[in-house]
């Protein structure tokens, strides 16, 4: 009889079923597809195929190269902005922060399109040559799209830094530059790290930016996966799953490395607000 009575615990049941069917099962399927051929026999060929094809390694290198450059540029721009905003005693600093976050709410394809329109206008004016600079355009687009995502986590950490740590450093005789490099910067590392994960991983796969601004001349991992799934041959889904699995392993390895899979993984979503 007891089992039939309503209890708060029962509310978890549909959730657990949903998680099992649409989160756990899909992961199992990716692994299954990655290690089998079209006849469902075990094989490592999908991985061999991926790693041995020289073009693919180049794509991997390009993806990570673009993502690394984008991340570095984003942090180099975002840090000073976040620092100035966090320092300012203005009442209006909340409004300024809002101004930096606002573009994040515009649809991301439309935002990328806006950059494309700007670059083509500059091309028309003879200032910028689109056809010569597909990689540069892609990086500009990526930085533009992900900059707001890097300002927010750094700002959140900077504003929480205990002012007395900075005063202590000054009192102990450090000049402002020393104070910054030996107190403020190390204390803000968590913010930088979370900005890095919010920019680096998405940029390795968002082929929308590469396609729109690189005129399909710039191929990243995301394109590889998409191509496999669009190909529609018996093998292609298995190869596509293998690439996805490689990506997933890289992601989880880097998560473990930066200790992100713990308590504070709520940041990812919460920081959009």
């Amino acid at each position: 009889m007891n089992a039939l009575r309503f209890s708060r615990k029962h509310l978890g049941i549909p959730y657990i079923i949903f998680l099992s069917v649409f989160v756990i099962l899909p992961l199992v399927l990716i692994v299954l597809y990655a290690f089998t051929d079209s006849e469902w026999h075990f094989t490592l060929n999908n991985f061999a195929d991926f790693f041995l094809r020289s073009g693919n390694l180049k794509v991997l290198a390009i993806s990570f190269g673009l993502a690394l450059l984008t991340t570095v540029i984003c942090i180099l721009i975002a840090y000073p902005v976040a620092y100035v905003l966090a320092q300012s005693k203005l009442k209006a600093s909340g409004i300024y922060l809002l101004l930096f976050i606002l573009p994040m709410w515009i649809n991301f394809v439309l935002r990328t399109a806006a950059v494309k329109e700007l670059l083509y206008m500059l091309d028309g004016l003879g200032i910028y040559d689109v056809s010569e600079n597909y990689f540069l355009s892609t990086i500009i687009g990526m930085v533009y799209d992900y900059l707001p995502f890097s300002i927010l986590p750094i700002y959140t950490v900077l504003i929480k830094i205990d002012k007395s740590a900075i005063e202590a450093s000054m009192d102990l005789g450090a000049n402002p530059v020393q104070t910054f490099f030996r107190t403020t910067l190390p204390l803000s590392m968590p913010g930088i790290m979370s900005a890095v994960t919010m920019v680096f991983l998405p940029t390795t796969t968002t082929y929308v930016i590469a396609d729109t601004l690189g005129n399909s001349k710039v191929t990243i991992i995301g394109n590889l996966i998409k191509t496999q799934f669009d190909a529609g041959t018996a093998e292609s889904w298995h190869v596509g799953s293998a690439i996805s699995l490689v990506l997933l392993v890289i992601i989880f390895a880097s998560m473990l490395f930066s200790g992100k899979l713990n308590e504070n993984d709520q940041k990812g979503g919460a920081s959009k607000w």
Partner: peptide, 9 residues
């Protein structure tokens, strides 16, 4: 934490 494209696939 996983990439959108992996979730989609």
């Amino acid at each position: 934490v996983s990439a959108d494209i992996v979730t989609a696939v």
